[in-house]
Structures are given as structure tokens and as C-alpha cells.
Design a protein around this nucleic acid. Structure first.
Lengths: 247, 247
DNA sequence: CGAGGGTTTGAAGTGCATCAAATAGTGTGG
DNA sequence: CCACACTATTTGATGCACTTCAAACCCTCG
């Protein structure tokens, strides 16, 4: 099986393409390529002209910006299945952030120009973009709320909760997906703060920590601790699938 | 001139409708009404089933959520020209926040059901929704960055800068659009913090405060003070109009 | 004039950041 | 399998930013 048909098979299952006509998805497949990047490798830089967007096959991609006085703000740390760089279409075709692999990763690289023409021609593609944009918007909304009202231990607890499956109950084992200092940065705090806040969370909810594995005695206790400052309880309202909008 | 034709005239100029066919916009006009609300009046409540969305004609509308432990998180404070409630379509047709008039306001109230069918039928309407959603996303993105890296005086400075016109240079007079304590809440800080932070900003940049009027001696000084923690200088990248995406 | 809200100021406390140093953990070459 | 080098994480001490509670002030409007 060549690259192009391999890609096609994957793309057909991606949220952005699943409702599109197969022959249109095939267009993307022929113009795409699978790339591998090492840990630490940059994919693109903030404000550089945007040529391609990406779908993560495996690994983790950090998106971030640098401030004028030399700081770094993490936008997100994206898992397999996510696409990124596609919003450049709405930012004057410049990348709105830099992207770097924080683990060795494999990606599908696709041309933005094609996405642009497809959006203009295929209503299903616009719908998919809109649905996806709405999802991003909702997540940002939740993150804004968290930053405004949760303290460090609560933010960590909330992060842990989002690593669990919705079905899980009672005792739950959680594996941190990447370095603690990276989790700290993702949550907008210092590594030292993360360490101390996690200890505080342990005292408050009785979870057990060993390295990057965390064992919750009772998920309910963590929910009670973390979600009390939020506007809705875990599992935080995520109505993507249930949405009444049949786009 | 009756309500319906008055509304039509206004809608045709609204960002969400300006690219749509006039006869489709007329559909909205016939199913809409102009409403007036007093200061303090609620328009809808978070998680209530969403029936209508709104365009602000004048006044100010606060969108917010209440947390389980009784706090309040402000989502935004919206001026004339903005629409709100329309994202309910992507939230399972429940309002994702509460909305309250913080000044006496006039609004156009439109049925969400119509927006939903129009989105499904009119590609221009999907495009407009997507463009609008992209704009909201970008603004949230900027706000997240600000919350993570700017301190209180910088956030105030940034807020003031956004109240100026881009053309303005040198000495600029700014009028706060609503109560200081509301500005404080909008920026995610306490009124006391706002008061002290504004005083600090005054010391740092030499602006003059009298009541709700603020006089900047030199806008450049404020830009330098506030934007140094950001990833781009004022006027913060806002590429909506310049976007290469001709949706 | 006096009541009431909005705003400022003061004093004290909490949370997070910062700097510095110790400790644990990981991978390497011998 | 061990010792070393290097990185990630934790811990301690201290400072700053923001909050909280309390009280004063100020402004507007009946």
C-alpha cells in the first residue's frame, strides 16, 4: 500500500473529513505526505506564512507563542487525532502560533491551499470546519473559566479528570501523558508550583502519586474538590456529539 | 416604516448577514422583533434551552456563568453590533452562558431555529458563521494569553488600548464604557485591585485619571508598558478583514 | 441634606513565583 | 551491573501580586 492510499484511509476517519465526499478526501490524500519529527523539532514558527496544516498520527505536539520580553505561552499540547495549523486560513494565512514536537511524532502534512479551495467549494467541508471551530471555541471557553477561578490544585485535578474515561468510577489509575514540567506549563504554572499543588491535592483528596502514575481512590472526591469552582460538574459539558446541530 | 422593514435594514449591515442573499435575510426580519431591556434585566439563563439569539442595537450586555460555589465568571461584555446566543447551536441548543443587560439596551431578537435551517441551506450563512466563530476564537486566544502572562496593570493598559481607534496617535482621551468595577470583573480582577493597578499604571505611563475619563499623554508609552508581555504589539494582530480566506 | 452605590485606601493574609539547593530518576559508557 | 552525567522533580526560603475584609471617601440623586 502506498502512502497516498494509506493517508486516504486515515483521513476518511478524521473528524474534519468523515462527512465529506470520498473523492474530495482523495484529493487531500494525493497532495499529502506522512512526516516523522524528532522530539524537539519545530514544525512551523508563529507569524510565518502558512503553507500546510497537520493531522497528528501519534506523539504530542506543543503549540505556543513567544512574548516580546522572551517568555513562552503554551497554547495547547495536542494528542494524536488532532489537527493544527488549519486556523491560519482565518489569520491572514500566517500561523497563529509556533508548533514543536514534544515527543517523536508522526503527522500527515496537507496543503492549506487545498483546504481553502475545498472550503469554498464543498459545503460539507465548511460544516466540518465550523463544527471543529466550535469545539475549539468551547474548549477555550472552559480554559478561560478555569484560569479565572480555579487555583493550582484544582486545575491539576481537572486536568487529571480529563485524562480519565467518562465511564470510569471509583478507583482510577491515571498515567501522565508527558513530563510534569510540561503539564505545569500547559496549566499555566511553574514546575515548583505544580509539585506543591499536586501534594496539596493529595492531602485534600487522598490520591497516590508514584512517578508519573497517579492512583485515585475515588474519582468522586476529586470531582468534588476540583469542580466546585466551575460552572458545571465533571464530566464538563461536552455536547459535541449530542449537539442538535446536524452539520 | 414597520418593525420588520426596520429590522431588515439593520440586519443587511450586520456582519453575520451582509454577504447573504437579501431575500434570505428578509426571512429573519419577518421572524424577528426589536426588544428593549432595562439595566439589570436577564435575557436568558445558562443551560436553559436556547430558543432565540440576539443582535445588540445599543447598550451593553454581560454574558456570564455562575460557579457551583456561588461565584460569577464573566464571559464578555458586549457592545452594540455584537450578536450573542448563536453559539447555542453547537452546544446542544442550550445557552452556554447567562446574559444580562448592564445598561438599558435595545436588541433584535431572532429565532435560533431559523438560523439553524439557514445554516443548513445557505453556504453563505455557514461561511459567515465560520468567519464569526473564527473571530471569537481569536479573541479568546488573545484573552487566554493575557490572563496567563499579563499582570493587572498591563491588562488594564491593554483594555484601554483596545478602546482607542487604531489611527490615534500621541495624546488620546479615553472614556470608560461602563463602571470601573465592571471593567475589573471583565478583566478578572477585584475592584480594589483595579483601583490600585490603575494607579500603578498612572505612575508607570503618566496617564491622567479623572472619574471615568482617562487621558493618555502618549499612547506609545502605554503600548510599550502593556504589550511587552504579549506575543505581538498593539494593535494586536487582528486580521479579520485582511484575511486571505475569501469566505 | 442624607442615603446609597461606586470607588479608594489601609491592613493583613494567601497563593504563586522566584531563586537556590537537594534529591530522585534516567540513560550512558565502562 | 555500576559509576557518572545529566535532567526532572522536589523542597526550602523569600518576595511580590492579588485578594479579602474593613473603613473611609466621594458622588449622585431623591
Amino acid at each position: 500500500m502506498n502512502d497516498s492510499s494509506k493517508i486516504l484511509k486515515i483521513l476518511k476517519k478524521a473528524p474534519l473529513f468523515e462527512n465529506c465526499d470520498p473523492e474530495r478526501v482523495a484529493l487531500f490524500a494525493t497532495q499529502s505526505s506522512i512526516i516523522s519529527v524528532e522530539k524537539g523539532q519545530m514544525l512551523f514558527v508563529h507569524e510565518e506564512p502558512a503553507k500546510r496544516f497537520f493531522l497528528i498520527l501519534d506523539g504530542w505536539i506543543k503549540t505556543f507563542r513567544e512574548t516580546l520580553d522572551g517568555g513562552q505561552v503554551i497554547v495547547d499540547i495536542l494528542p494524536a487525532g488532532e489537527i493544527f495549523g488549519e486556523t491560519s486560513l482565518f489569520e491572514g494565512e500566517f500561523y497563529p502560533y509556533s508548533a514543536e514536537a514534544v515527543e517523536s511524532s508522526r503527522l500527515i502534512s496537507m496543503p492549506l491551499s487545498l483546504l481553502k479551495t475545498e472550503i469554498d467549494q464543498d459545503p460539507k467541508m465548511i460544516s466540518a470546519m465550523l463544527t471543529n471551530m466550535a469545539r475549539i471555541r468551547r474548549e477555550q471557553d472552559r480554559e478561560l473559566e478555569h484560569l479565572k477561578i480555579q487555583n493550582a490544585p484544582q486545575r491539576i485535578g481537572c486536568f487529571l479528570l480529563r485524562l480519565t474515561k467518562q465511564e470510569e468510577e471509583g478507583q482510577v489509575k491515571i498515567q501522565l501523558p508527558y513530563d510534569k514540567s510540561l503539564v505545569a506549563a500547559r496549566l499555566g504554572m511553574q514546575p515548583e508550583t505544580f509539585s506543591r499543588a499536586l501534594a496539596k491535592l493529595k492531602d485534600a483528596t487522598g490520591l497516590e502519586i508514584s512517578g508519573s502514575t497517579i492512583l485515585l481512590q475515588d474519582i468522586k472526591q476529586l470531582i468534588h474538590y476540583s469542580c466546585s469552582a466551575c460552572s458545571s460538574e465533571f464530566p464538563c459539558k461536552d455536547l459535541t456529539e449530542k449537539s442538535g446541530c446536524n452539520l
